[in-house]
Nucleic acid binder design. Sequence first.
DNA 1: TATTGTTATACTCTATAACTATA
DNA 2: TATAGTTATAGAGTATAACAATA
Lengths: 141, 141
Amino acid sequence: MEERPDASTGYLLARLGAESRRRWARMLAEHQLAPHHLAVLMSLGHVGPVHQQRVSALIGVDPRNTVAVVDLLQRRGLVERAVDPGDRRRNTVTLTADGVDLLTRLREQVDAVEDVLLGGLPGHERELLHGLLSRLADTLP
Amino acid sequence: MEERPDASTGYLLARLGAESRRRWARMLAEHQLAPHHLAVLMSLGHVGPVHQQRVSALIGVDPRNTVAVVDLLQRRGLVERAVDPGDRRRNTVTLTADGVDLLTRLREQVDAVEDVLLGGLPGHERELLHGLLSRLADTLP
DNA sequence: TATTGTTATACTCTATAACTATA
DNA sequence: TATAGTTATAGAGTATAACAATA
């Protein structure tokens, strides 16, 4: 009887997360976007306009590295930055109409990529997984 | 009623995977190792000696980038490379006794990191998540 | 000719330090 | 003094191309 230690959950998360990111990257390359850019669009679509600091926390990217990500999206007219009148240090980031449009169109491709990645699980288990990951993500910040 | 599109499962995987990797990296820094190094040790502990090509597939790292990872582990005496007599192009990678020792000692710290990351989920849901991720990882290669 | 491992290299992503402006 | 955003930059990780040895 051989010892066969199982991989840890944290490792499986990192391993599958890297795989998912890789597929996202390939899909997004045709749009000249990187995973972080879509992450921002999806986050804004999810929670609405927020300060740039909050964007960083939502997508799990350091504030300094978030600057360039939002810069590109702004240059493409997908998001807008507006100084918060209540605290002029803060930038409120908002999806533009073009941003919403692109997000809507990308969702289809996102789902297609996902179908391949999660192909090994039947539908009800995918929903189960999604629920668990979703709750886990909410407890992070 | 505001539109609140939910984040995709693939995105949640990438997001949580990056977080997990970050915590692994901080923990492993004291041992002068990177996540990929532990990934190799865990994989070998899981499936036993395998060709380097298979190591690449298991940890999800390109063969070219795997070379340096195995190089370091070999220099530290944690794994051994042996030419396969049956096909001399191939290197069989094996855990050394020191490698097994380190892996055993690291498992404790891995579990501690994991407890923090998965703190938001009760025990039975962690097991559920582990099972789902485990099956998903098996369908990848 | 195809495959395993390898090197060199360019590119992307992430982390460390320090600055500006507002508070 | 502390915080939001920014810049510059070094370091780690990943991807592109080409090669040697073996099959």
